[in-house]
Design a protein around this nucleic acid. Structure first.
Lengths: 155, 155
DNA sequence: CAAAACTATTACGTTTACGTTAATGTTATC
DNA sequence: GATAACATTAACGTAAACGTAATAGTTTTG
């Protein structure tokens, strides 16, 4: 269990940002000390790092991230409930249907995100190619001029 | 030549954003009408689209984008000057050196950006793989449950 | 056990990237 | 040539994502 400053160092966020994310409902520390100090687990840190990824890689706003996080929680919750009941007896129709609809909803939410990510990657690869072309031209020009410079100065 | 509203539609920016970017020194329309209306060329539109790419793909702030744009302009400027003088006579040492240093500076600026882009792409591909895994699990589970549902309802 | 170091909450402040009027001038249209 | 329909600048407003005190309580350390 880590307290806030350690987590701030691990995640490269500020303590303020951590409290802010908690205020928005993105991540809460798994515990508190008697005196009220936030205590984070490794899993908490993992989730924070995941949030940072979504922010930096998907370019999602904190509000959008919150939606995703909440959907994930809803899913986990339902799955726990499902697993608990599935062990002992068969589900009846309505319960099965509810679970199927949940999975469908998750799928419908994740698929466009996946596609968005994919096209973004493709465009970034194009941009990378542009960078590489430009850099290649610059480097070859620079070596060319360096040679010329040596010629002028009789090296 | 397009006026602002047409450019706004082409670039999916608002007119306000276009004026704001101009105010920051990111892009200026190539011309104005007698009465002061902004007139953009195709090249202007291209540059705006490029700016949007840097914003969305690199996640750069407008201030950072401004720096890149300015460096690019400085480079173009020097290259024009260079080409004009290179045509007629040989450059002497100092001029060559200045040009070489400019190319070096460009290279030093672009290389970390390229690397940043590359590692970002790699991490996004990991994230994409995660998405795909998750989706695959969800879909297979959903079809499994759908079959089960059919069984319960004797279809 | 007292000082030093850390943390909590509250609340106001700041920066970025525009949105939104308002007042006025310009082009296009009928 | 009037009147929409669009444009300009100027200025104030705003949402997101924190920063920065201020005040007060908590842990740690010598």
């Amino acid at each position: 269990m880590y307290k806030i400053d350690e987590v701030a160092q691990k995640t490269k966020l500020t303590k303020r940002a951590l409290r802010y994310y908690e205020e928005l409902g993105l991540v809460s520390p798994s515990g508190r000390t008697e005196g009220g100090y936030r205590m984070y687990t490794d899993a908490d840190v993992e989730q924070i790092l995941h949030i940072i990824d979504m922010r930096d890689l998907l370019g999602a706003s904190l509000a959008e991230i919150k939606e995703m996080v909440e959907l994930g929680r809803l899913y986990e919750e339902q799955r726990e409930f499902y697993n608990k009941h599935y062990k002992n007896r068969d589900l009846d129709g309505p319960e099965l249907l509810e679970r199927i609809e949940m999975l469908q909803k998750l799928e419908d939410t994740l698929t466009p995100q996946r596609d968005f990510l994919q096209t973004k990657i493709a465009r970034m690869q194009e941009l990378l190619a542009d960078f590489d072309n430009k850099l290649e031209r610059i480097v070859s020009k620079r070596t060319e001029l360096t040679e010329e410079f040596k010629g002028v100065n009789n090296c």
